[in-house]
Amino acid sequence: MAGLAVTTRDFGLEGPRGWAFRGISFTAEPGSLIAIEGPSGSGRTSLLLALTGRMKATEGAAEVGDARLPRQMAALRGVSALAHVPGVTDLDPALTVGEHLRERALLQRRFGGSLRGLLRPRAERAEKARLRIETALGAAGLDREALPKGSRTAVRDLERVQALRLSVALALVGRPRLLGIDDTDLKLSDAERAEVWALLRSLTEAGTTVVAVCSEAPGDAVVLSTGRTGGDVPREPGAEGVREGDADGESATESDDAAADGGTDPEGAGDVPDARDDVKEAADAFAEAGRA
């Protein structure tokens, strides 16, 4: 399935005390790797959620595939998915890899399939679910046989990159055309970062558009930079000298902290930005909007 093209024009999200992000204007072709780069607390998760139809922008407009934002958020949610977003897509450490996969397949069949599909013979439904799972695992590069206990391996026993791959696989069960991933390179070694970016590139090569939050973007991505001085401006792959930051001249941390005060902005819970504060505010705002 082909990925979604993404175009934004002066896209922004304002809370009661300030801007989470503002002035985002860029165009990305279907199957692009889009990296949202910036420090923790700079509006990265807010922008990710807005571009995937999970949070309503308050300024500007965007076109993601056929969906026009902010008016057609529900349509976009139907063709997009999230992975590795703390507070939103958390894996249960007590459940096994197999249990997570079976649960996601059941949810997909119940809420993501057609009525006609629900009426098919049980054996046919089971085979279709198995194929979906195997295809998703293959795309995410997660080999269950290589895990300590195979499918019975508990999430708590997974390595960090393995857990990220599982989260991606669960998102891919729904065959999204746009995949959003948060904290892509958080607490990873250089070798692990290279491994994760190689995974995301493989997804884009297969046609899926990927939007990934990171602290340092690779050179071949379309880069949206947040949290510095001079205006949030996208950087095309290989481009240099981009102006970055908040358009109003506030520091990124001050802007995100301001927006988080009223529960609209999901970023920046304190004067000193912290990754846990960043995702906690995102989860709170996400749940408050009734879209968790």
Rank of each mutant, 00 (worst) to 15 (best):
257 D>E: 13
91 L>P: 07
35 A>G: 05
91 L>Y: 05
54 R>G: 06
11 F>N: 08
190 D>F: 09
1 M>I: 03
186 L>Q: 14
54 R>H: 12
248 D>I: 10
270 G>H: 11
221 A>E: 06
102 R>A: 12
205 E>C: 01
96 T>S: 15
117 G>H: 15
188 L>W: 03
136 A>M: 10
291 R>Y: 05
230 G>N: 09
37 E>W: 02
182 D>N: 08
289 A>Y: 02
220 D>I: 10
170 L>Y: 09
197 W>K: 09
244 E>F: 01
151 S>Q: 03
94 A>P: 00
33 L>A: 12
6 V>K: 11
152 R>Y: 09
149 K>V: 00
38 G>A: 10
135 T>P: 05
25 S>E: 06
242 V>W: 11
256 D>R: 10
3 G>T: 03
87 G>D: 10
98 G>E: 10
142 L>Q: 09
101 L>V: 07
81 A>R: 15
214 C>S: 12
287 A>N: 01
286 F>W: 13
146 A>M: 11
37 E>S: 08
97 V>I: 04
194 A>I: 05
154 A>Y: 05
46 S>W: 01
252 A>D: 02
271 D>G: 13
129 A>S: 14
200 L>S: 01
192 E>Y: 07
60 G>H: 03
286 F>G: 00
145 E>A: 15
250 E>T: 15
132 R>A: 15
196 V>G: 05
204 T>E: 10
121 P>V: 08
185 D>E: 07
27 T>G: 01
90 D>H: 04
160 R>D: 07
118 L>D: 04
101 L>W: 08
76 L>Q: 08
88 V>T: 10
278 D>I: 02
110 R>H: 12
147 L>F: 12
269 A>V: 11
199 L>Y: 11
75 A>Y: 00
207 G>K: 10
168 V>Y: 13
25 S>A: 11
218 P>M: 04
108 Q>D: 14
124 E>W: 09
175 R>S: 14
267 E>S: 14
113 G>R: 14
168 V>S: 01
55 M>F: 01
213 V>D: 09
122 R>Q: 11
147 L>S: 08
107 L>N: 05
51 L>G: 01
281 E>S: 04
217 A>D: 08
66 D>Y: 06
292 A>P: 02
130 R>F: 07
230 G>T: 04
29 E>R: 15
285 A>W: 07
127 E>D: 13
116 R>A: 15
45 T>L: 07
200 L>H: 06
204 T>G: 06
39 P>G: 13
34 I>R: 08
123 A>F: 01
202 S>Q: 12
92 D>R: 13
217 A>P: 02
114 S>D: 11
21 F>L: 13
210 V>Q: 14
279 V>R: 03
59 E>N: 03
39 P>T: 13
128 K>R: 15
167 S>D: 11
194 A>V: 11
56 K>G: 00
222 V>H: 15
277 D>H: 10
210 V>K: 09
101 L>D: 03
118 L>C: 04
14 E>N: 11
153 T>F: 02
155 V>Q: 09
117 G>T: 07
43 G>L: 06
190 D>E: 15
116 R>F: 02
13 L>C: 00
82 L>A: 04
101 L>F: 05
192 E>F: 03
47 L>W: 05
227 G>P: 01
191 A>V: 08
27 T>F: 05
279 V>T: 12
